[in-house]
Lab assay of single mutants.
Amino acid sequence: HNLTITQGKLFFHYNPKLCLSEIHKMEEVSGTKGRQERNDIALKTNGDQASCENELLKFSYIRTSFDKILLRWEPYWPPDFRDLLGFMLFYKEAPYQNVTEFDGQDACGSNSWTVVDIDPPLRSNDPKSQNHPGWLMRGLKPWTQYAIFVKTLVTFSDERRTYGAKSDIIYVQTDATNPSVPLDPISVSNSSSQIILKWKPPSDPNGNITHYLVFWERQAEDSELFELDYCLKGLKLPSRTWSPPFESEDSQKHNQSEYEDSAGECCSCPKTDSQILKELEESSFRKTFEDYLHNVVFVPRKTSSGTGAEDPRPSRKRRSLGDVGNVTVAVPTVAAFPNTSSTSVPTSPEEHRPFEKVVNKESLVISGLRHFTGYRIELQACNQDTPEERCSVAAYVSARTMPEAKADDIVGPVTHEIFENNVVHLMWQEPKEPNGLIVLYEVSYRRYGDEELHLCVSRKHFALERGCRLRGLSPGNYSVRIRATSLAGNGSWTEPTYFYVTDYLDVPSNIA
């Protein structure tokens, strides 16, 4: 807008934040220059609390790290170098490059900038070799853009010569660093050979998330399962459950009422301010606690030095998902009996873990797994792929695949051998790939016309006998059925096997 004052003059007093240069501009645009008398524009009460600059400061050096910015700028000295009290560095987070010096300023003089007072450097006698002032900004957020400017702080001049310097606002972004852990990993099994893994992005990506790394490792069953005799009275049979499938998407929606109208769909109840505040506090606490764990609990591995020492970490090797089922080394339970199943799973520490690289999504279907087997899954978020990966501390989750139908069934015939004193040795093959492992066998036998009897055969007993022995049988026709019990439950009964026990007292003698 054009402003013209045809008559009258300007009068400025007691404006401590208004620089004289701005008042002189007002004289020019209003056409009143030359009308004012000496005392109409006070030299001592206008701009006496402001830094009124008329020179431009330029930054000469900028260096960044993930949490620091090192700045240096060209030296500046007023005509009387004693008038320079120091520099004021202003900075704040700036997602967009549209910041002005006066953003967030209120009537009390406060604003949204963080201000650092910096002492002037030592003055050199040689004007050509003056030290460049600077400042190291610490405690910054990774991968965050900051708006920065600097200006001088000078003393009051009796001659009211307006001098000083100020830089333009520059924008500097800190470097990326390792992201925080992925949030809320959930693993479920939808079949006997697959596990579905879902997660949420890290709360602090500290860069642009480029991919996720998912490692999985087959877990050995508890050692007590191999040692305890679950045929003993009072000892509860062990059981394991597989990871249940995901709930429906509708039930997972946030901010939804727990109660549904019987007449149909209901609208979600909005969260109160107290609920939102509580969630923010919980989120802040979780982030602080995660940072504490990362800094205190997890110790970084030592990389190899120039002395030739090897990095103890196993090298990563990509495998196809079809090879995942046989990740671990199978060892027989008892070496003397080769027909026992290889369900003991000690994992070799030198073995390469299978892994998958996930790009542009937060889910993965891990296939080719062994049925009813526990897996430990390790999830890392990465925001750099080359020249070397920059990934987060791992988040861990466990899951067990679903049982395989008929995996616990005894394959092959049940054979028998009759000894003296009416002892019958029953023999059968253990299931080759049971659900988890076989903890015991149930032997059901009966003599024709009598009630059915049951015998429990422990895992250890089966390994020693290759089956079991029935003792003290009365003469007669017998039928026997056997079924295995694994961590997933009972298998199917075998087809009945028949044998006849004679009275050993009636056996004919070869003595003449």
Rank of each mutant, 00 (worst) to 15 (best):
I209E: 09
G412T: 07
G368W: 13
N421P: 14
I482T: 01
Q252L: 12
F289I: 10
Y375E: 00
A407R: 11
D229L: 07
S486E: 00
S203Y: 04
R218N: 12
D311T: 14
S243Q: 09
R286W: 11
P354E: 09
P312S: 12
D503P: 15
L228M: 09
K406L: 08
D222Q: 02
S305H: 03
S283G: 10
C266T: 08
K317V: 07
Y478E: 00
E281V: 11
Y230C: 09
P314R: 12
E260P: 13
Q256V: 06
E420K: 15
E281M: 09
E279P: 08
S444Q: 13
S305D: 06
T303A: 08
E420A: 07
N383I: 04
T288L: 11
S283A: 09
I276V: 08
N326I: 08
Y478F: 05
E495K: 11
S363C: 13
P434W: 01
K406M: 11
P205R: 11
Y445A: 13
P354K: 06
V214D: 00
N208T: 05
T485G: 01
S479C: 03
V393W: 13
C266V: 15
G264S: 08
L277R: 12
K432T: 12
Q380I: 15
H425V: 12
E249I: 06
S251F: 10
Y292A: 11
Y500L: 11
R353H: 12
V501E: 01
R376D: 15
G489F: 07
E281I: 15
Y498F: 08
R471Q: 13
S251V: 11
G472A: 11
S509N: 15
R218Y: 08
S283K: 00
F372C: 12
K302V: 06
L505F: 12
R400G: 07
D250H: 07
H461Y: 12
Q256C: 08
S479Y: 03
D273A: 13
T497L: 12
S320R: 10
T241G: 12
E356Y: 13
A220E: 15
V439M: 05
L277Y: 03
E247I: 04
S274L: 06
R376A: 07
H294T: 02
D229A: 10
N339E: 11
Y259H: 09
P434Q: 09
R447N: 09
W242E: 09
S509Y: 13
L277A: 13
G436W: 02
L235I: 08
S458M: 06
H461A: 10
K302S: 11
G368C: 04
L277H: 11
Q252V: 10
L225G: 02
L237P: 08
K287G: 07
T303S: 07
T347L: 13
Y478V: 01
H416E: 05
S367R: 10
I276M: 07
K271T: 10
V324E: 03
H352N: 04
K302A: 04
L364R: 08
D250I: 14
I276S: 08
